[in-house]
Design a protein around this nucleic acid. Sequence first.
DNA 1: CTTACTTTGCGTAACATTTACGCATTGCTT
DNA 2: AAGCAATGCGTAAATGTTACGCAAAGTAAG
Lengths: 256, 256
Amino acid sequence: MHMSLTDSKEKKHIKTLSVVQSEVQSSNRIGLSVDCVIFGFDENKLKVLLIRSDLKKFQHKWSLLGDIVSPNEDLDEAAYRILKKRTGLNDVYLEQVHTFGAVRRHPVGRVVTVAYCSLINIHHHKLNILDNELHWHDVRQVIDLAFDHQQIFDTCYQRLKKRIQEHPLGFNLLPKKFTLRDLQNLYEAILNTKMDRRNFRKKIFTMDILVDLNEIENNVPHRPGKLYKFNFSKYEKNELNGQKLIFELKYNKPAM
Amino acid sequence: MHMSLTDSKEKKHIKTLSVVQSEVQSSNRIGLSVDCVIFGFDENKLKVLLIRSDLKKFQHKWSLLGDIVSPNEDLDEAAYRILKKRTGLNDVYLEQVHTFGAVRRHPVGRVVTVAYCSLINIHHHKLNILDNELHWHDVRQVIDLAFDHQQIFDTCYQRLKKRIQEHPLGFNLLPKKFTLRDLQNLYEAILNTKMDRRNFRKKIFTMDILVDLNEIENNVPHRPGKLYKFNFSKYEKNELNGQKLIFELKYNKPAM
DNA sequence: CTTACTTTGCGTAACATTTACGCATTGCTT
DNA sequence: AAGCAATGCGTAAATGTTACGCAAAGTAAG
């Protein structure tokens, strides 16, 4: 959750904050917000979208993107609204992860927040991230976030690591056409491991979730790789039959 | 979430309800509750603890155990409070599962609820479940719950099925001393499958999470089985190293 | 006491999956 | 044309999964 306090250019935010503050503190009720951990993939690094906190207490610290849930919108709706506002993207992967409700987690008063995890293609919204203090951070360098956002981030990142080994979520982060190396780089970045190239290839192919496009990449200073796209029908089929998609990537070597 | 409305013996509940009602409806803010899906194991059946709904709209329907979160208690605290009140148990397994926030999920007004999943030994609290309309239901016969509680129950049951294959949660549901057959019966009840007895034994032993007590059961009309207890140190060790405990139970036959 | 019956405890072999790693091929660069 | 870097394909060893045989332990019945 993010609310403006000190920035004089954003009077609307200040008003919102004070309204929230008085409501939360005086009326003895509990505020509800949504926070989004938005992951992207760029330069073979897993990134997360953060915004500069405007609360004096957390000056210069980074925080997740969030907002108060409005009384007439569903939780998921609120998460989508935040995502749309900040990235311009509509049809993205979004999953509720956990709700954080410690009494003093927010300095303004009692605010319980529902954390969502989202995966987007970092190159599909270049224009929108030029907003004020929005920035893509390398996940390995995310420390000391505002509020309890470090804990929220850690929880969502852990969840992502687990889910990507059971579901082919990676495709939300890659371009439509990609090589096997792209896919492996993504997995290695998320799981922070090194895998054997040949075994990775075998594993992916036995799952039968890729479609060979009969094209090859170009502008690479070595032998170009084949391009593939994701086989959605296969994915959905796997989702339906059985409890979970078998998508384990073991045989990982320790991270470099 | 459960609130009394029609039962004249429970004036306190009615008052609570009306207060909640007016607050929720008039103040345009969002109410927050906690609902607990409490699982137990008895007669080789997986059971869930339900209470009769007192809301007129859901008369005679069963609902989960829940309550409004108080402004000065953590979310987890609220869940523990409900569990303690209804079962008398303090130190139990409790895990947050999902938050349900559809605008019209509750007839009284906007109430968002955080669902928790709990596993308790059904024989450790016989006295407390004799409250009003509290009852242990066979999970296979749970249908048509009040509110959106069917959906909440389904979500928690699904989660349980998944988690018990990754973590040895079953021990929360069994007595301290148990046989391998007890353990297998539990797994078969939760996962609704039949497994091969000899392979199950092998799998459990290779995980090294049991301690042989050098005792055998008695009062059984056949060869008695050895008694075991859970090896907690092993469990914690497994929890720490690596992302997840390897605890897969495949080779299941279709349910009977 | 003996036999029938049920369930436990242990073992083994076929099958499947995972892992390590060899090597020719392709395209770019010099 | 040779060197380089990465791709694409393959094979064998190690490990894990599954099916199932069988002796032993206890109860119940004759």
